[in-house]
């Protein structure tokens, strides 16, 4: 234990010879990856390579078929589904989850601001466009105060200005000590500490 504290940047996620089967199909096998705490890990690869599946395994939602995984800290996941009720406003939807994460309402206001969502705060969730919904989903992860944030294609559907805001917000999150694990098949505008290419 003492030895661990002495290490400068202990690992937040350690993946060792991981394999995953989905519906009888081998999605990936013998996967090794280490992501140090407070750094940015980037998952790249074509569609169907298993990027989202790996994020779900790290989040604890799926079990690997073989290998081991160690995740150190509280996890937040922003995947392709919004998990926000359609009728309440964006602010209400995000505040619900902030409260579930024992975060103050100001955490929501801060993240709405940093992702350029403040003007949409009082718009019902169902009225949001694809890019706005994507930012809202990432906002939920960013406001959660989790140690490790798993973001699936955070740049999808974003226009140039929103992508720049997203990149700045993510970089700030890493600077603040959060471990980010991103899956993206397009450039994210920030340099990752470690990259795992999941080519099929």
């Amino acid at each position: 234990m003492e030895q661990r504290q002495a290490e400068p940047a202990p690992d937040a996620v350690v993946i060792d010879r991981l394999a995953c089967l989905r519906g009888g199909r081998l999605v990936f096998e013998r996967l090794d990856w280490r992501i140090a705490r407070g750094t940015l890990g980037l998952l790249t690869g074509p569609n169907g390579a298993g990027k989202s599946t790996l994020l779900r395994i790290i989040a604890g939602l799926l079990r690997p078929a073989a290998g081991s995984i160690m995740v150190e800290g509280r996890v937040a996941l922003a995947d392709e589904r919004r998990a926000l009720d359609p009728l309440p406003t964006l602010r209400q939807g995000l505040r619900f989850w902030a409260a579930m994460d024992a975060q103050p309402a100001t955490a929501t206001d801060r993240v709405l601001e940093s992702l350029g969502l403040a003007p949409l705060a009082d718009v019902p969730v169902r009225m949001l466009s694809t890019g706005q919904t994507k930012r809202a989903v990432v906002a939920r992860a960013l406001q959660s105060g989790a140690d490790i944030m798993l973001l699936d294609e955070p740049m999808n559907g974003l226009d140039k200005a929103s992508a720049a805001l997203m990149a700045a917000a993510l970089a700030a999150q890493v600077r603040a000590g959060t471990t980010l694990v991103l899956a993206s098949h397009i450039p994210i505008g920030i340099d990752p500490t470690t990259t795992l290419d999941m080519a099929i």
Partner: peptide, 11 residues
Amino acid sequence: ESGFLDQLAVR
């Protein structure tokens, strides 16, 4: 379908 249950499980 909306991922709400997954969000609870992650927490």
